[in-house]
Amino acid sequence: MPLTLTFTEGVLPIGEEKQAVAQITEAMLKWHGLAGNKVMTPNITATVHVLPKSATFSGGQEFSGAWVEWKTPSFAFTDREVQQGFFTEATDIIHELSGGKQPKDQIYVNVVHAVDGAWNMNGRAMTNTEIGAAIAQG
């Protein structure tokens, strides 16, 4: 499940990006009841993008933002309690790692779902049912 973190330069102190990846990954696993799952944990990957302020915008104007985006199979993040809990926790993680400087209303969290069957694990396309069976093994 790829996690993409995008920050305007200066939102997080240099080096805190790794902590953000670790904490947000842990939160995602926790909210889905998968903490410690040996199948799911290594299948959570992440990329971090740090952009200059001249490349991040709100309302067409330069600003400093933070974006947390997951790409997941369509069964993830479907429970409203999971959505609310994870989104709040992810926002709090970024806010705290920024030293309290990044306003929570400038931290954005979203989820993009894949079409059932269009998810690759272990080198093959898997359906939601197949992924669920693999996760149940871990």
Results as ranks from 00 to 15, higher is better:
Pro42Gly: 05
Pro103Val: 04
Ala76Phe: 15
Glu16Arg: 14
Val112Gln: 11
Pro52Lys: 03
Asn43Pro: 03
Gly100Glu: 05
Lys18Gly: 09
Arg124Lys: 14
Glu96Pro: 12
Thr127Asp: 13
Thr47Ile: 08
Ala133Val: 14
Gln84Asp: 11
Asp116Gly: 00
Thr6Ser: 12
Ala66Ser: 09
Val111Glu: 01
Asn128Met: 02
Phe63Lys: 07
Val21Tyr: 08
Met121Leu: 15
Ile24Ala: 06
Val68Arg: 04
Glu26Asp: 15
Trp67Tyr: 14
Leu97Lys: 12
Ile107Gly: 07
Ile44Asp: 08
Asp105Val: 10
Ser58Val: 15
Trp119Gly: 06
Gly123Phe: 09
Thr91Glu: 10
Trp31Thr: 12
Ala133Cys: 11
Ile93Arg: 08
His32Met: 04
Thr8Gln: 03
Gly117Pro: 00
Ala76Trp: 13
Thr127Met: 02
Phe75His: 07
Trp31Gly: 03
Ala114Tyr: 06
Ala136Pro: 08
Glu69His: 15
Pro73Thr: 07
Met126Lys: 14
Asn122Gly: 12
Val39Thr: 13
Ala46Asp: 06
Pro2Phe: 08
Asn122Ser: 15
Leu3Lys: 00
Ser58Thr: 12
Phe7Tyr: 10
Gln23Asn: 07
Ile107Gln: 05
Gly123Tyr: 13
Pro2Ser: 09
Thr41Gly: 15
Gly85Ile: 06
Asp116Cys: 06
Ile24Gln: 09
Thr78Met: 14
Pro52Ala: 13
Met121Ala: 14
Met126Asn: 09
Asn128Thr: 05
Ala134Lys: 02
Ile135Cys: 07
Pro2Asp: 01
Gly33Asp: 09
Pro42Tyr: 04
Thr6Glu: 07
Leu5His: 00
Thr8Ala: 00
Ala136Gln: 05
Lys38Asp: 07
Met126Trp: 02
Ala27Met: 10
Thr47Cys: 08
Trp70Leu: 03
Lys101Gly: 09
Gln102Arg: 12
Lys53Met: 13
Val109Gly: 00
Ala35Val: 15
Val39Phe: 15
Glu81Tyr: 00
Leu29Asp: 12
Val50Ala: 13
Ile14Ala: 15
Ala133Lys: 07
Gln83His: 00
Ala66Thr: 03
Gln102Lys: 03
Met28Ile: 14
Phe63Gln: 02
Trp119Phe: 14
Glu81Asn: 05
Glu89Ser: 06
Trp67Ile: 15
Lys71Ser: 13
Lys30Ser: 05
Leu5Phe: 11
Glu16His: 10
Leu34Gln: 12
Ala125Ser: 13
Gly60Glu: 01
Phe87Thr: 04
Ala20Leu: 00
Val11Leu: 07
Val112Pro: 04
Lys18Cys: 02
Ala133Pro: 13
Gln83Thr: 06
Val115Cys: 07
Thr45Phe: 06
Ile24Tyr: 01
Leu3Tyr: 03
Pro73Arg: 12
Ala114Glu: 07
Gln102Asn: 10
Met121Glu: 13
Glu89Tyr: 09
Phe86Ile: 10
Lys71Gln: 05
Ile44Val: 11
Val50Lys: 02
Ile14Gln: 15
Arg124Asn: 09
Pro73Lys: 11
